[in-house]
Amino acid sequence: MNEKIPFTVNAFQDFLNNKKLMGTKCRDCGNLNLPPRIICTECDGKRLEWHEFKGNGTLQTYTFIYTAPTFLKDKVPYAVGIAKLEEGPMITARITDADINESNSIDIGANVKIEYIQESGRNILTLRIK
């Protein structure tokens, strides 16, 4: 069903808007890429297919943003982190349930689950700490 959808930023976003986290799997070496690629980052293979990620992972690092770009300046402070998914790839996401007043409120290595929030009329990735 997804076979004819090109591996584009737009397609990735369309999937996100439907609460699906989609990357690519290389048919040659089996490597998974998230976000989707056109060329496999492992073997330079060009025979890729869509792959859905389950959205479970661990937090690798994080920060609290106090100085934000214009489109987010009313939301400060907010938290952002990088999660390593159980399938392997890592991804940047907002963290929605962090207690930003406590600097040690988040543990690096914590289990996280990918969720979605709507912002500027589209879904963005968030991490819920389990």
């Binding site: 930023v9 770009p69 987010l72 907010y78 952002v80 940047t92 907002r94 912002e119």
Partner: peptide
């Protein structure tokens, strides 16, 4: 622009 900026990480 696609995979870092929308999350608001500067």
């Amino acid at each position: 622009q696609a995979y870092e900026c929308p999350l608001g990480v500067s």
